[in-house]
Amino acid sequence: MEKKLFTFKETKQKLADYCVYQDRCHQEVEQKMWEYVLIPEAKDEILLYLIQENFLNEERFTRSYIRGKFYMKSWGRTKIKSHLKFKGISEKLINSCWDEIDEADYQKTLEKVYNKYYATLKGLKEYQKKMKTTKYLMTRGYEYQEILKLNDEDN
């Protein structure tokens, strides 16, 4: 990919706009910087500027990511956590942001996803349906223990 040539000021503004459009993590911004021809000192200065001016805020990003993936995509904690770790977010920060998901909402969503998927399974024995549903929910990032509780309630 051909790198674009912009002045330092233009690049700084473009990266600020990139952060304003949607909350970003450091890794995403550093990746975006590869599109521009910048010396390491310029990259550092831009990162510092973005942090000082609150365009780049790792905690805000983490909280927003957790809310979005749970409330919009119905992902479970495990999947959200692994995706955040992949983006370079620390375990400590992730753990401090779980309060973005209301526990009652989490249980309701888990039940909703469980029941919706379970209802689609036709022509299977009860234990097969439960097994498939458990597998499906685990791929959606829900904890095995939480799924087991739902399975037990069904009996």
Results as ranks from 00 to 15, higher is better:
residue 2 E to K: 14
residue 4 K to D: 10
residue 5 L to S: 07
residue 5 L to E: 10
residue 9 K to Y: 04
residue 11 T to S: 04
residue 11 T to I: 05
residue 13 Q to A: 13
residue 13 Q to P: 00
residue 14 K to S: 07
residue 15 L to Y: 09
residue 16 A to T: 00
residue 16 A to C: 07
residue 17 D to T: 00
residue 18 Y to P: 07
residue 21 Y to K: 13
residue 21 Y to C: 14
residue 24 R to A: 03
residue 25 C to G: 05
residue 25 C to K: 01
residue 26 H to I: 13
residue 26 H to V: 12
residue 28 E to G: 00
residue 29 V to Q: 03
residue 30 E to D: 14
residue 32 K to D: 13
residue 33 M to W: 01
residue 39 I to Y: 09
residue 40 P to M: 03
residue 42 A to Q: 02
residue 44 D to M: 02
residue 45 E to R: 01
residue 47 L to I: 14
residue 48 L to Y: 05
residue 49 Y to L: 01
residue 53 E to S: 15
residue 53 E to Q: 15
residue 54 N to P: 05
residue 55 F to D: 14
residue 56 L to R: 08
residue 57 N to P: 05
residue 61 F to S: 10
residue 61 F to V: 01
residue 69 K to D: 07
residue 69 K to T: 09
residue 71 Y to N: 00
residue 73 K to A: 13
residue 74 S to A: 15
residue 74 S to E: 15
residue 75 W to L: 11
residue 75 W to M: 12
residue 75 W to A: 02
residue 76 G to C: 03
residue 77 R to Q: 15
residue 78 T to N: 09
residue 80 I to F: 04
residue 80 I to T: 08
residue 82 S to G: 04
residue 82 S to P: 03
residue 83 H to T: 03
residue 85 K to L: 06
residue 87 K to R: 01
residue 89 I to G: 01
residue 90 S to R: 06
residue 90 S to L: 00
residue 90 S to M: 01
residue 91 E to W: 07
residue 92 K to P: 00
residue 93 L to S: 02
residue 94 I to Q: 03
residue 95 N to Q: 13
residue 97 C to D: 03
residue 102 D to E: 14
residue 104 A to F: 12
residue 105 D to R: 08
residue 105 D to V: 09
residue 105 D to Y: 06
residue 106 Y to C: 08
residue 108 K to D: 13
residue 109 T to C: 09
residue 111 E to T: 13
residue 112 K to F: 10
residue 113 V to Y: 10
residue 116 K to G: 06
residue 119 A to S: 15
residue 120 T to C: 14
residue 120 T to D: 12
residue 121 L to A: 07
residue 122 K to N: 06
residue 122 K to H: 03
residue 123 G to Q: 09
residue 125 K to H: 15
residue 128 Q to G: 06
residue 129 K to M: 12
residue 133 T to M: 10
residue 133 T to P: 02
residue 133 T to D: 02
residue 135 K to S: 11
residue 135 K to L: 11
residue 138 M to G: 04
residue 141 G to H: 06
residue 142 Y to N: 04
residue 142 Y to S: 11
residue 143 E to H: 05
residue 146 E to L: 02
residue 147 I to N: 03
residue 149 K to Q: 13
residue 153 E to Q: 15
residue 153 E to I: 01
residue 155 N to R: 05
